[in-house]
Design a protein around this nucleic acid. Structure first.
Lengths: 229, 229
DNA sequence: AAACTAATACTCTGATTCGAGTAGTCGAAC
DNA sequence: GTTCGACTACTCGAATCAGAGTATTAGTTT
């Protein structure tokens, strides 16, 4: 059998549902939704049906029966196979135990930060911070409600995780904005200088070709310097 | 013109390169690589060429010339348009200022943690922690090297961000593992009980149908309880 | 009782993404 | 002198994804 490629976590969620009992795809989607899983696992119909099809092809689930009520569309009920049960636990264990490198959009943006003028960058970071605080409050409100219902921690764990990461990002973003403005961020001087020159019509190209002339001795070392993770 | 959908950050990186000077796609890829951007922005050839094509269709870049040396494949050199320059700054500003919800695989896994036996879960979390520590040390080594070359902070900022998030995740993961084992994690008792019952052949299905009988009064409230973000 | 709304249960199509594959060039080593 | 691997510069197809669209029915309003 072709090796699973374990890309879309939605497939894992499907297996997890079918471990409980056989269901048809639409029922899987409503189940996931009612349990709030769609907040942690991206769920959309297009993917759901193709993921189910692919799981069946791999022998991890099998169609059990096809029913239809009246003239509604057919519903195919799927059940998990033994291979599927194993795959489910195995996959989950892997997701927990080995971190995968995820490319976030903020990281991408930060790596191109040079393109923005420093004060502008600081302003945008403040904006982000404000939005992050709003998200944080949203989670806190949800947690307060959950606490009042005495839900066990296990049901909130993914949300606690999100809250942790949100807080760390907020901390990073506010510190960065502050340091850019205060100059504590090392090299802000020539970053600012680059944008002053650009405002007078000197482009990146010229800067890269003659960093010494425009930015001074040190700058030469930085251009096209290979960077590290 | 059709509204940009700003999905793949690689397109932004392409624009950012072309702001500097006209290049052909392969040159863009080597430039990004030599500057270490491919550590923050996923880069693969297939995507690069389709992204370039799409940017051209949208009028954000234009083909300047097509050259060929000997019998090598053609190289098409692209340059950025005015619309492209604007889009580049605008997009970057958006990425910085508005956080987007990203679905991480750990979050997905945590939302299904119930499926693993608690001690097993704790063990897997420890494994992850160890791997995260290794990643952390890798970043630290890279930073030490960068410091010895006196690279300005701006060139390391995305890596500092990664390090921040890594640390937060590590903190979360170790705490969680500890709390599961100590029982500080509220509800570990019935989580453990569920798996004891399963080991004796009582499946999730039966539990969900008669939570009171198997797990006691309180458990009834939790099943199929809608959850919050 | 007709119309409207919400929910059920998919289906389809176009776009995107991935990564392996290809085909030529160059320099160095054997 | 040729073989080898590394680099250059893409191309292609298969898989995946997204999300709008469709068709039916149950319930609710007017």
């Amino acid at each position: 059998m072709a090796r699973r490629q374990r890309s879309n976590p939605l497939a894992l969620a499907v297996l997890a549902c079918l471990v409980e009992r056989p269901m048809h795809p639409y029922e899987i989607s409503t189940t996931l939704r009612s349990r709030g899983k769609e907040l942690s696992i991206k769920l959309n119909y297009g993917s759901l049906y193709s993921v189910v099809e692919s799981l069946e092809k791999q022998g991890l689930i099998r169609a059990r029966e096809t029913t239809r009520e009246g003239r509604r569309p057919e519903r195919t009920v799927y059940e998990i196979t033994d291979a599927g049960t194993i795959e489910c636990e195995d996959w989950l264990a892997e997701l927990i135990s080995v971190p995968v490198r995820e490319f976030t959009s903020l990281e991408a943006a930060l790596s191109l930060l040079l393109l923005l003028e420093p004060n502008e960058a600081a302003r945008l970071l403040d904006e982000r911070a404000e939005r992050l605080r709003i998200d944080q409050r949203g989670i806190d409100a949800a947690h307060a409600e959950a606490a009042s219902m005495q839900l066990p921690d296990l049901f909130l764990i993914e949300s606690v995780y999100r809250r942790t990461m949100l807080t760390a990002e907020l901390q990073f973003v506010t510190t960065l904005a502050r340091d850019i403005r205060s100059g504590a961020f090392q090299g802000t001087d020539w970053w600012r200088r680059i944008h002053e020159l650009r405002a007078v019509g000197i482009g990146f190209e010229e800067l890269a070709q003659d960093p010494v002339g425009h930015l001074g001795e040190e700058a030469a070392r930085w251009f096209n310097q290979p960077q590290s993770s």
